[in-house]
Design a protein around this nucleic acid. Structure first.
Lengths: 412, 412
DNA sequence: CAACTTGTGTCGAATTTCGACAAAAACGGG
DNA sequence: CCCGTTTTTGTCGAAATTCGACACAAGTTG
């Protein structure tokens, strides 16, 4: 009976244009898409019905009727996001723009295995949803970051070194038993990169986010998209060997890895060997903030070591931005200074001319924000919006008594 | 008055599915696209009219009427491709599948400037077109590779070190004065990577193509797409510093660059210092093929040096494939052996488990093939096919005397 | 050779999209 | 203060496209 399948430009594509939060007029949207204004109006009405966009105050008139603007309504639905670390986890409920509505940070042991951890996660999501006063049906997706390699398509961890019991575990399958929504899983550094990009540098087409704490890793955005690599371990710079520490053994079995020289454990160990009593990252940061010269020098040297590897990254990726996050980045600008020192000296001027090396701005919540972005991306894609529309139709139609079904013409 | 704009799935999308050369039945295409078979038939008819696809022999029956297959007709149109080096150039006419129909290889001097070189190129394209017996109207696009950084969007070289007079020159504009078709320009290594991928590893989502000759560069394909970076210089590994040669000066002004140690000029210089009379790359290759131990050791050491940088690349990109091309790659497997030695020793096992390091298979023509692919991609995109269809309609309609224009209903 | 199976062209109906027009809402000059 | 101008929005008929169904074609299999 003839149905044109919403020829490639449904309400979802229109919605993607509004994802940036910018309010726009119908006329602007028509110009951007090439569709007629009347078509845009139909689409916008659908989105208004779903509550996904809302009218915002009219823009200033340019001599005639002032245009009515519509914008993303971030509060229409919520997303659950989790950043699970080795010993700590952040779980949050965010709106569709990635803004955290409520969150918790708790100690966990990732090593207690997927069943325990994911059960805990499910409970926390339920609690947080209640706390925000949002119903289960408002939840459209869940994003999870894990401290190890993840095959993103399937959501299964692969060969994680610090996650016993998680290897090849079907994380989305387990979580979907409790929440029937899309569940997206990725490496924690990757989601931090996504979060950092979205929060602070939405226009960056090429950027490298580096996380420096016990381990050192990076998330790479190139060509506007997160690059995961063939096995999901792209950006794993922690085990690149650097010249300085040829005989320093690393937990991975090799020698001279960046992580073995510039990771927080390595720095603390070296300071203790120099007679400075420091037992944890927070103590180290306190020392640096107090101006302890030896600690500052150690941090700066770590920055130089990281910079050595990043110099190569700059040549390979040619990014416009490098941002530094993770626990050690909170020790002021010293680590950045060390990185800049090396990167700007050793890379070609043409590559560094428009390159910034900046501290992360998203901070501790970069992870959950990124997880939220990753999940939202999926939930509000074509299928996501279509299924939302269908669900709303089936929920609402019964109250709209239009005698239609008996008239259906069925041929014999 | 009411026109649905070919709602997102025109003949071009269908054509993209056939770009791989695989013959397919209409039913298969309907299943792949989700469109109705009848719709597919209309689209296929358009493409048959344009000559872009042709019917091929029926496939074997599976119990009923055997399906009629259609496949890409690579010979329908042609593409001009040029790989311009510092002192040599390859120019070719290819079909739409990137197969070289005829080509020439000549000495040029890129340093003689864009006006001279591009004029030469235009003449050569004319000559080759005539040689193939193809008309100017059969030409749908031109692809050009240049030995330096190029801003791909605009087609302008940016700060090329060995191309005096070319900086910021509007190459596509100049060429379009002679041929009114899309002109795509990119770095020569990038087009070689594209060519190599297309010819030999069409399924590779992540690969690194390394060109080793006087200079050393690489083209990076990640996420299925060529990565050009913020300034078009992604993959520029020639000026990454390596540990071995801390005090070896490089032409770029820095010290210890990979190129200064493992480029052909560096190898030749070092061999001469060891008393071996070798003046050119071809002599060097001859020596290696003759089994000269010193030369082989020098090549292998160059491989190790390159492998040192590639180890980092492997950690960052996580590719499934590294291919080695360029003049030095023709000296047998010695350079590859050196690369493998280092890459497989120093990278993490998880990254190398599914990583191959292979010699380039596309050989000397990788460049022009890649340039052809790049140009074809553009020419046969949506706009490309639509404009071809329009042109053919306007050319042909006059001979189809249907009195339509007077009947146009114009409202007052 | 007949029955069955599978694929291809044709046609009406449903849906979508476009363009035009009228109404709405502000600005600005008299 | 009023009215024409300008710009945007909502509504409606017409054109275009797509779908599904059916009839036909062309082999296979018993």
């Amino acid at each position: 009976m003839g149905r044109a399948p919403n020829g490639g430009f449904g309400a979802s594509q229109l919605f993607q244009l509004l994802r940036d939060g910018e309010p726009r007029t119908r006329t602007e949207l028509a110009a951007m898409t090439g569709l007629a204004r009347s078509t845009i109006s139909i689409r916008i009405d659908e989105l208004l019905d779903l509550g996904l966009v809302i009218p915002v105050g009219d823009a200033a008139s340019t001599g005639g009727r002032p245009p009515a603007q519509v914008a993303l309504n971030p509060g229409a639905r919520v997303v659950a996001a989790a950043d699970l670390g080795a010993t700590h986890a952040v779980v949050a409920i965010t709106d569709l723009a990635g803004t955290v509505l409520c969150d918790i940070r708790e100690k966990i042991e990732i090593a207690s295995g997927p069943d325990a951890v994911l059960e805990w996660l499910v409970v926390k999501i339920r609690t947080l949803l209640a706390e925000c006063g949002r119903a289960h049906v408002d939840l459209v997706a869940i994003g999870i970051g894990l401290p190890g390699p993840v095959e993103h398509e399937s959501g299964k961890p692969t060969n994680p070194p610090i996650m016993p019991g998680w290897d090849n575990f079907d994380v989305p399958g387990r979580v979907r038993e409790s929440f029937a929504v899309p569940v997206l899983v990725d490496n924690d550094v990757n989601i931090m990169a996504l979060g950092e990009r979205t929060v602070s540098w939405p226009a960056a087409e090429q950027m490298i986010f580096v996380k420096v704490s016990t381990g050192i890793g990076s998330g790479i955005i190139s060509g506007g998209a997160l690059q995961r690599g063939a096995r999901g371990i792209a950006g794993d710079i922690g085990h690149v060997q650097i010249a300085r520490g040829a005989d320093v053994p690393c937990s991975c079995g090799n020698q001279g890895c960046l992580e073995a020289l510039a990771g927080s454990a390595a720095i603390i160990k070296s300071l203790r060997e120099q007679g400075i009593a420091v037992n944890s990252v927070s103590e180290l940061i306190a020392l640096v903030k107090a101006g302890d010269i030896t600690s500052i020098q150690a941090i700066r040297q770590a920055g130089r070591d990281i910079g050595e590897v990043l110099t190569t990254c700059v040549s390979i990726i040619n990014p416009s931005l490098i941002t530094i996050g993770g626990a050690l980045a909170q020790a002021g600008e010293h680590i950045i200074a060390g990185i800049r020192e090396v990167v700007y000296t050793r890379s070609t001027p043409f590559a560094t001319e428009h390159l910034s090396v900046m501290p992360s701005r998203a901070g501790e919540r970069a992870g959950v924000i990124g997880a939220s972005i990753m999940a939202t991306e999926e939930a509000l894609s074509q299928e996501g919006i279509e299924s939302m529309a269908k669900r709303q139709r089936t929920d609402w139609k019964p109250r709209n008594p239009t005698t239609r079904d008996p008239e259906k013409s069925i041929r014999t």
